[in-house]
Amino acid sequence: MREIRYREALREALMEEMERDGTVFLMGEEVGHYEGAYKVSQGLLAQFGEQRVIDTPIAEAGFAGIGVGAAMTGLRPIIEFMTWNFSFVAFDQIISNAAKIHQMSGGKLTCPMVFRGPNGAAKQVAAQHSHSVDPFYTNIPGLYVVMPATPRDAKGLLKTSIRNDDPVVFLEGETLYNLKGEVPEEDEDELIPLGVARVAREGDGCTVVAWGRPFHNAMEAAEILAKDGIELEVVDPRTLRPLDTDAIVRSVKKTNRCVVVHEHWPYGGPGAEIVDVVQREAFDYLDAPVERVAAWDVPMPYASNLEELVLPTTERVLEAVRAVSYR
C-alpha cells in the first residue's frame, strides 16, 4: 500500500468529499489563501474557489454558528478550528445548538457537520494552547467524537464524518500531521465506520487502550515489552463517542489486565469512562486493578523540562503495564 502523511490523508478526504458533494464546504481561519495553519487545506482554494473554501475573521462563535445554521438548512459544513483550544469561545454553538437540534426539534432537523482541527499539546505552547478537549466533548450526547491516530484512520474516518448526519467533533493531532502511514489508493473510497475500535496489535499479556498521540507510545511500549515476553494487545477506540465498549471488554476478558493511556487530564473523560466499563463488565476477569496513564493534572507549563514530565510517555506506559502484570 502507498504511504502518505496524516496531513495529506486528511486533505484527500476533504478533497474527495468536496468533489462528491457540492453542499460540503470548508470554513475557518486561514484555511484558504494561507492554505491552513498546518497546511491541511493546501490546494483546496485553488481547486474549489472562494465560495467553498472560506477564510473567516477570528470569530469562532460566529462561524461555528454559521455552520450550524447552514447544516440545519441543508449544507454540510466543515468548520475548522485553527486548534481546538479556540473552540472554547464557540462552546455554546457546539453544545447548546449543534448537539441539541435533532432532539429539540422532535427529530425533525439534523445537523450534518464536522468541527475539526488539532487537539492536544504541541510543543511548549503553554497553558492556554495545550488542551486535550476529548473529555469536554465526549460528555455531550448528540455529538460524535472522533480522534484518529494514523493516516489511514484520519482519511477514512473524516470521509465518514462528513457524510454523517449528526455533528462530529473531529480531533486531529498537531504532532501527528507529519506522520506517514499506509493509506489505500484514492479510488478505493474507503469509509471507516464511526464507533468501531481497531485492535492494532494482538497479544494476551495486557490490554492497552490508547488513542491520539499516546497510541504511538502504546505501540512503542508493545515492541519493547515483546522482548520481555509480555505481549500487549493495543486497542485504539478511534471514535470516543460512541465508544466501542464491546471491543474493549472483549480484549480485557482475553488478557485479564488493562491499562488506559490518554493525553487528557485524569479527572473523568473517556479515560475514566473506559475504566468504569471494564470494572463493571469484566470485573471477574481482571487480575489487577486497571491503571491509567494520563497527563499530570495541571495546566501545561511552558518550560520543556516540565512539559516532558506532564505528558504521557512510553516510559510511563511501561511502568503501568509492569504494575498490572506484577513484573
Binding site: 491499562v259 487530564w265 485524569p266 479527572y267 491503571e291 491509567r292 496513564v293 494520563a294 499530570w296 493534572d297 495541571v298 495546566p299 507549563p301 523540562n305 516540565l306 514530565l309 506532564v310 504521557p312 510517555t313 516510559e315 510511563r316 511502568e319 503501568a320 504494575a323
Partner: peptide, 23 residues
C-alpha cells in the same frame, strides 16, 4: 518541578486537589 503542582491552586482546602495516575 515543584511549582507544577503548587501553583495549580492558591488555597489549601480538603479533598484531593489534583488527581494522580501512573507516572
Amino acid at each position: 518541578e515543584e511549582l507544577v503542582f503548587s501553583t495549580v491552586y492558591a488555597t489549601r482546602q480538603h479533598g484531593t486537589p489534583t488527581l494522580r495516575a501512573t507516572g
